[in-house]
Design a protein around this nucleic acid. Structure first.
Lengths: 205, 205
DNA sequence: GTCTATAATTTGATAGAC
DNA sequence: GTCTATCAAATTATAGAC
């Protein structure tokens, strides 16, 4: 047990691990206490209730998942570079946090109010609108094939996120161990941007 | 309450609704009893335990989700038609059962053993191998751009499934009501096959 | 701050009348 | 087959000693 990490931080780390693995309803305060190497009562001393502790973990997770999109879509690079950057960045974040998507999606499904509250004051929607405009411009200037901006954004996110959300199923279906799954992801990082850009490439006249 | 539906069937229907909404750990036997309009003890009379009842719902859900892939990838049509058919069929199944993917993925993540047991005797993997070979043939014959078969399969499934798994998030992020979300899905059904086929189209010489 | 002990509540499951 | 009443175990939360 790391002696130089504060108890509060150890609880957060333990809660992150347990909540992301088991979800809000499946997680037990005892699991978190065990994982943190402390007593159950201390959890309540620091965070008062399971729900309070969960909020912290959920917000942290949603933040990590959504901010990535926001600060890449927001800047001023050309569309094709932006798509490549988005894929690369997203795949990197998800490689480090493979179970985040399923956790966040599951908990939003349980209580959509959570994500609505989360969005307040996060400036997500305006950033997204700007990205939509950039896509629409590229369509109008015939730099890419006609496509509705929301459809394209969902295509990009689907292709990045889904393999992680489905990793336990994939590993069974394709009979991959963890190392082979990581190889699959590494190959994907390299090939995904060109797959998307090829789909968007306008017909030559 | 429908009088001509057997109690057993009413329980199954109620369990499906509650489990798919709340997941195994979040669902309460009382919720299911209420939804079925019967007493909690009757659930145990018919199905003995929560876990037994859950197994039935989970298997049914996994079946619906996976058999769709199996019986389309298995037949003898050309690759481009098969991809189109796969998208159309999948999107239709998911429109009718939008919460299935998140439910199944979440429960597999909780206990990967479930899906391994499910696969036994289902003949999924050989069917998939045949589809992989067909893709590899198309690559070798330069009918499509070079791509690893598993990557392509995951691309197709990602693009079909993810919007449903993420629907509560999408509806908030894009500010869509249910009707607008359905419009989004209808548009997607029309456009997705050509997006994928465009990505695969080989360079002209 | 941290622990032990325990309260208060929820929940899956059973017993037994009808 | 269906219900009421109840048990036993699990689980969140708190009281109080140190």
């Amino acid at each position: 047990m790391e002696k130089d990490i504060s108890t509060e931080q150890r609880i957060i780390d333990a809660a992150r691990k347990v909540f992301i693995q088991k979800g809000m309803s499946g997680a037990r305060m005892q699991d978190i206490a065990d994982e943190a190497g402390i007593n159950k009562a201390l959890l309540h001393y620091y965070f008062r209730s399971k729900d309070k502790l969960f909020q912290i973990i959920f917000r942290e997770a949603a933040e990590k998942l959504l901010v990535t999109v926001k600060d890449i879509t927001g800047n001023e690079t050309p569309l094709d570079e932006k798509i490549t950057a988005l894929c690369n960045r997203y795949m990197d974040v998800l490689s480090e946090n493979p179970y985040l998507p399923l956790f966040v999606l599951h908990e939003i499904h349980q209580d959509p109010g959570r994500i609505i509250n989360f969005f307040k004051g996060k400036n997500m929607v305006p950033q997204l609108q700007k990205f939509f405009l950039q896509i629409q411009d590229a369509v109008d200037n015939k730099q890419i094939k006609p496509i509705s901006p929301p459809q394209l954004v969902i295509n990009i996110i689907s292709l990045c996120v889904f393999p992680f959300a489905a990793s336990p199923l994939m590993q069974t279906l394709f009979d991959l161990d963890t190392w082979q799954f990581n190889l699959f992801i590494e190959e994907r990082k390299k090939k995904l941007p060109e797959f998307i850009l090829a789909a968007l490439k306008p017909e030559k006249k």
